[in-house]
């Protein structure tokens, strides 16, 4: 998917600047957004996903300008899939319903089609036995995998993942990353905000490093990680690798 960001800026409460002048123009298959907390990663992801409005700047997807009004965004968001850090599943619905309800209500599947597709996907990702459980009855890793299944069920152009493993115990992190990797092999495009540097490096084609609301570095993962140009990224990486 071609993504073009032109001078995207965003501040909260008209004081705290979260993003300033972010520019990017590329055809993205898989992208990791990395950087220290509070650097604007999640905000950028939400703007790209049409969940937040930028204060200034433009977003073009496949050369088409995204208009930031609720009516158009509603349409725009339907073509994307989202996975959040945690709490993204509707906790009053079962795993199965979490997937089928949006298919029926948003994508106009019949209940039968939705059930069939959802069960197929849940089976494939080893979640069939848990499909009648509500999120609270699932492990953190299972919840995130269900959330990923929900995000891909309607065959979106791209999925956006906001720190999908940050709230997980370490033993669940890999099962979630494996799931994402499997989808990647099938050609699913995604943007992931992550602290899993290993996954950003090996699992993602491109990487963007965001700090203090600025896009400091961008490029092929292999190049950016092998040869970080800015002092900020060098520091960030050395801190992360301290115990590795």
């Amino acid at each position: 998917m071609k993504i073009k960001l032109e001078k995207i800026s965003k501040s909260f409460n008209s004081e705290q600047i979260v993003l300033s002048d972010v520019n990017l123009d590329d055809d993205i298959q898989t992208l990791a957004i990395i950087g220290p907390s509070g650097g604007g990663k999640s905000t950028l992801l939400r703007i790209v996903g049409g969940l937040l409005y930028p204060d200034a700047g433009q977003l073009l997807i496949d050369d088409k300008l995204v208009t930031f009004n609720e009516k158009e965004l509603l349409q725009y968001r339907k073509e994307l899939g989202f996975v959040f850090q945690n709490g993204g599943l509707f906790f009053h619905l079962t795993a199965l319903e979490n997937i089928t309800v949006p298919l029926v209500k948003v994508h106009h599947y019949t209940q039968k089609e939705a059930d069939k597709l959802a069960i197929e996907l849940l089976t494939r990702f080893g979640l069939k036995d848990d499909m009648y459980k509500r999120p609270a009855e699932l492990s953190g890793g299972q919840q995130q995998r269900v959330a990923i299944v929900r995000a891909v069920a309607a065959k979106p152009k791209m999925i956006l993942l906001d720190e999908p493993t940050s709230a997980l115990d370490p033993e669940y992190t890999n099962e979630v990353l494996d799931t994402i990797n499997e989808l990647k092999k099938e050609g699913m495009s995604f943007i992931i905000v992550t602290h899993e540097i290993g996954f950003a490096r090996q699992g993602c084609e491109k990487v963007a490093f965001l700090k203090d609301g600025k896009l400091m570095e961008y490029g092929l993962s292999e190049e950016v990680f092998t040869n970080p140009k800015t002092k900020e990224l060098q520091q960030f990486l050395s801190k992360l690798l301290e115990w590795n």
């Binding site: 996903g49 969940l51 509603l74 968001r77 339907k78 994307l80 989202f82 959040f84 945690n86 709490g87 993204g88 599943l89 509707f90 906790f91 009053h92 309800v101 949006p102 209500k105 948003v106 994508h107 929900r150």
Partner: peptide
């Protein structure tokens, strides 16, 4: 939970659906 409402917007529910379904 605001996260639930954000998730509802993310899956593509409109305002009415968010109220009714979530």
């Amino acid at each position: 939970d605001q996260k639930q409402i954000e998730a509802a917007r993310a899956v593509g529910f409109n305002k009415k659906q968010i109220i009714k379904i979530v």
